[in-house]
Design a protein around this nucleic acid. Structure first.
Lengths: 126, 126
DNA sequence: TCAACCATTCAATAATATTTGAATCATCAA
DNA sequence: TTGATGATTCAAATATTATTGAATGGTTGA
């Protein structure tokens, strides 16, 4: 993934309105929502919503499809997962055991160690 | 997770410099890096780096520890994972099968379906 | 075609974030 | 204690982003 792409995703989700919109669409799932529904659900003026929907779409977090005179938006779940992978790329210099030790050593209540998809070894880690 | 926390994390990672700093520290792992090392590695003026380190620390993405006259920074991997969980909270209205169908239906090259930790059912899903 | 509707673009304003150099604070080594 | 070093804070200038209302573009149903 290109740095620019990751930045666009983070920038997109750094606005309260856009975060609400994205989460709303994650919940909506396959069905998605048309712009007017989103505006009503979140009580945002259409002009302003358009601004944020455009940002989210350009970042790759949303797909949009025309439906008559409506615009239907859906969340792109994969875009977000790809960004996570980018963030943890080459974590702990590619040494999985150190990665586990490191996470265990952290102050936060983190004894769960959910998935990080640490690379087995070496350079390649998409 | 509170919305405010998630916003802080996204806002933090939406700057090119902060994204570089965080990724740098993810690679460094347990050992972390002192501010001067980061400044040298990324060629950023100390004043400006301080500004960004403060932002990252306040967002919870970094831990800082004093070491003599140095400040050692380490990435907080868990903070990021918690944000992912927040984003996918109640995805597809809590219906795992629809969640799978939805992701399979997406335009992106997404037939892999990496982890999403979809809830088994119902409300509770930290 | 026409009027109504959904949504977007445009231009201006308001609000935030970033960068810089100078000044400050704390620690170390002598 | 003093001078040097690592890093941060402060204040000002710059740059970027968000919001609003008016105007525009495309689609539907009569």
């Amino acid at each position: 993934m290109e740095k620019r792409t990751a930045l666009q995703v983070f920038e997109a989700l750094s606005s309260g309105i856009r975060l609400d919109v994205y989460r709303c669409l994650v919940v909506a799932g396959r069905q998605g929502m048309v712009a007017g529904e989103i505006a009503a659900a979140l009580d945002i003026p259409p002009t302003n919503l358009s601004f944020h929907l455009k940002n989210l779409t350009q970042s790759g977090l949303l797909w949009v499809e025309q439906e008559g005179r409506f615009q239907r938006y859906r969340a792109n779940i994969e875009a977000m997962l790809a960004v996570i992978a980018y963030l943890t790329e080459n974590c702990c210099a590619g040494r999985p055991q150190e990665c586990v030790d490191f996470r265990r050593s952290q102050p936060g209540l983190a004894p769960l160690l959910p998935p990080l998809d640490c690379p087995a070894e070496g350079p390649g880690h998409s």
